[in-house]
């Protein structure tokens, strides 16, 4: 059986790996190359400048600020989103009380309705979500401040996106709102594959909701949670955070640099300031941060896989 195995497998892998190399690995190498040049992005001429861009980046206070915000995104967003999603999907799938004649393990009443409701934001493009919330955050006539006025809190009228101490959190809340549904569905699928007899045994032993969750659901769902964690972190470092910051915030990136993130800074340097080489340098830094994040999560989350 060994004979010809290599050829067989390589035959299948060549095409996808070739595409991957051309469209993923190749651009990576190119941008690393450009980060050592002074390319403007607006003319074909450039020369090598060695480590100048990197030196400049280390001295750039806006870079450090954007790095700090990106790290906050990468740490806070997954924690909040995944905790919420775990809670919701547990309540939808497992958390219900036993009803007469029904199955032993079941979700709360109306759980199938909630499932659809949670997934709904996922249907909207992130650009539309960001625009909707930009209107909602309008301090003059937006939905949030209008509701506050409506319930008699007319004196509490925050500027939301106009306030440096609130803006970053306001932006993050939008990302949580728009992504939590996806993870609810993902975790629900994972929980559906956990055998019911495990829960039954736990119930017979007198386990409550909390201990069922922490001792049965979470350990058996760990793989899914871990990949969800990486996925959410990359999303928070990358395209999604760019879209919301670019569309919603003052400036964008403000007020007073309070919401600028690395992807936004890459974009501004490349396409506003005509400094494509410096932008790729920041892009390389972003690559390092993203890889470090993924490696960290993988290492911290390594556990023995349970099979059931």
């Amino acid at each position: 059986m060994q004979h010809g195995k290599y050829r067989f497998i390589v035959g299948f892998l060549a095409l996808p790996l070739g595409l991957y190399a051309l469209f993923v690995v190749w651009p990576f190498i190119q941008s690393i190359y450009y980060s050592f040049t002074d390319w403007t992005g607006l003319s074909p001429e450039f020369k090598m400048v060695g480590l100048d861009n990197y030196r400049r980046m280390l001295d750039d206070p806006i870079f450090w600020k954007s790095l700090q915000h990106s790290l906050i995104f990468a740490l806070v967003l997954p924690v909040v989103t995944i905790s919420l999603a775990l809670f919701f999907s547990f309540m939808i799938n497992v958390g219900g009380r036993k009803r007469r004649g029904g199955p032993v393990v079941t979700g709360v009443r109306g759980s199938s309705f909630y499932k659809i409701v949670y997934f709904f934001p996922q249907v909207l493009s992130i650009a539309i979500v960001a625009l909707l919330f930009a209107f909602a955050y309008n301090p003059d006539s937006g939905a949030i401040n209008s509701i506050l006025r409506g319930i008699g809190l007319g004196s509490v009228q925050p500027l939301w996106l106009g306030d440096p101490s609130l803006a970053l959190w306001a932006v993050m809340a939008v990302l949580v709102w728009s992504t939590v549904g996806f993870f609810v569905v993902l975790f629900s699928a994972g929980m559906a594959s956990i055998p019911a007899d495990l829960y039954e045994a736990a119930l017979l032993d007198g386990a409550g909701r909390a201990s069922t969750f922490f001792r049965i659901t979470l350990p058996l769902l760990w793989d899914t949670v871990q990949s969800g964690w990486v996925y959410m972190g990359i999303l928070a470092l990358g395209a999604e955070s760019f879209a919301v910051v670019q569309i919603m915030t003052t400036g964008p990136g403000g007020p007073d640099y309070s919401t600028t993130v690395m992807v936004l800074y890459v974009y501004q340097k490349a396409f506003r300031d005509g400094q494509a080489a410096y932008a790729t340098t920041i892009g390389v830094a972003l690559l390092v941060v993203t890889l470090a994040f993924a490696a960290l999560v993988m290492r911290l989350g390594r556990r023995e896989r349970l099979e059931y």
Binding site: Y137, N138, P139, D140, S141, G142, L159, W160, D163, P255
Partner: peptide, 16 residues
């Protein structure tokens, strides 16, 4: 200055 102005974009402020 109109209340809430720092949170308005150009279109919103022109509309107000």
């Amino acid at each position: 200055v109109l209340k809430g102005t720092p949170g308005l974009d150009h279109i919103q402020s022109q509309t107000a």
